[in-house]
Design a protein around this nucleic acid. Structure first.
Lengths: 113, 113
DNA sequence: CATTGCCACTTACTTTTCGTAAGCGTTTTC
DNA sequence: GAAAACGCTTACGAAAAGTAAGTGGCAATG
């Protein structure tokens, strides 16, 4: 993984990317439709969500279930691999959130210099 | 965290960013100097490594120990919070690497469509 | 004793990525 | 019959990242 040409690097980037991590964590609660996801992951644009989901689907982390009805209904779900990944991501996110006071204190100390 | 203006988002991005995750994982083995890190994290430029380290230092995840000798010797270490974070990151990375066959298979199936 | 290379960076420039905004066709809601 | 929701895609400007070169001092090589 530390090697430049490692094939797992792109996947790691999809998973840990700004929107990848939030998207996957949001899907831990259950399947969500495109616009439901967009509302949960506050700040993501339609374009970036679309891109993110395509990448995650290609990597086998997210399953896309499109029903050819009118209007189209598209549900996104985590695959088993996706769930394992998302659980770790969410744990990391929650740990960081819990310890944000430490981070903010460090930032203030740093900026005060 | 899912809120747009959440103060933990920038920190999450530093931690999970392309170079942040690899840099922190590399530091789990012990303190490293700037160029040692650069050689370990294959592909990172001096500029990006410098930027990444500054951000992580400001967030209180990495400690920078610069000795004013000649030539200057600068050691980077993980703080306790940084170590907790890096352990989770490394676990995620190793899990992904172990399951890359699944990912590659999914990619091939996707591309074949 | 000149050349090369290492050390830890910073700065200018180019390329890639990202975010913003609009458009698409259909279908239910008021 | 006007407006909004659905799930996207496309064009364009802005921001981030990658590339390359420069800095200044010291150590070892030739």
């Amino acid at each position: 993984m530390f090697a430049k040409a490692c094939p797992s690097r792109p996947t790691l980037e999809h998973v840990t990317g700004r929107w990848g991590s939030l998207t996957m964590s949001a899907l831990l609660d259950g399947p969500l439709r495109f616009n439901e996801l967009r509302r949960r992951v506050d700040g993501v644009s339609e374009k970036m969500l679309s891109q993110t989901l395509h990448a995650l689907e290609r990597d086998g982390l997210v399953h896309r279930d499109a029903q050819p009805t009118n209007p189209p209904r598209v549900d996104y779900t985590l695959t088993p691999l996706g769930r394992d990944t998302a659980e770790r991501l969410l744990a990391l996110i929650q740990m960081l959130e819990a310890r944000m006071p430490e981070v903010l204190a460090a930032q203030q100390a740093y900026d005060a210099r």
